[in-house]
């Protein structure tokens, strides 16, 4: 059996119900997911879309499992030019109450060999999930970390130029 490529665990001081709502409500997701909205009626077999504004669909998929407030799973297929030829991968959210907090496990699997989508989610999920945790615990989301990463790349290039 093939193993998942990406497994990530974070503990959040909230309730399973609030976490479930954050993961499935488009207006809430917009607040922590750097302006992206999750759009679906969350019925197994229905479509899932990640949208920017009202028109731009950045990811699309199909709802595979929906067991509130425990397990949510959908397929994931970015629409970006350099990624859209890849077969859809699969993301799973597992929610378990644990010592007054909630344990969230995000598993993302079934990527193609050498997948560009895997490279993008590997840095994307940690940023989204840190922002989700901050949003649920303090009411404040985090700024997207890729602007920070970008500044790191510039600093690194400057260091190389000094050699």
């Amino acid at each position: 059996m093939r193993k998942p490529e990406f497994v990530y665990v974070t503990y959040i001081a909230t309730t399973p119900e609030k976490l479930w709502r954050a993961l499935t409500d488009e207006r809430i997701s917009e607040q922590f997911w750097f302006g992206y909205r999750v759009v679906s009626d969350w019925t197994v077999g229905s479509s899932f879309r990640l949208m920017q504004g009202d028109r731009i669909v950045t990811d699309e998929g199909v709802v595979l499992e929906c067991d509130p407030p425990r397990r949510l799973s959908y397929t994931w297929k970015p629409t970006y030019e350099d990624m859209r030829h890849e077969a859809p991968s699969r993301v799973i959210f597992d929610i378990e109450p644990r010592n007054g907090q909630v344990k969230l496990t995000v598993t993302h699997e079934q990527f193609e060999e050498g997948s560009k989508v895997f490279e993008s989610i590997r840095t994307g999920w940690p940023a989204v999930l840190s922002s989700l945790k901050s949003f649920l615990e303090t009411g404040r989301a985090l700024p997207p970390s890729w602007t920070e990463e970008h500044s790191t790349i510039i600093a690194a290039a400057a260091a190389k130029a000094c050699l």
Partner: peptide, 17 residues
């Protein structure tokens, strides 16, 4: 460390959180 079970196998992952 985070884990994922698939069938009878349990896989271990470095969890950087």
């Amino acid at each position: 460390v985070a884990t994922a079970k698939r069938g009878r196998e349990k896989f271990h992952y470095l969890n950087p959180v």
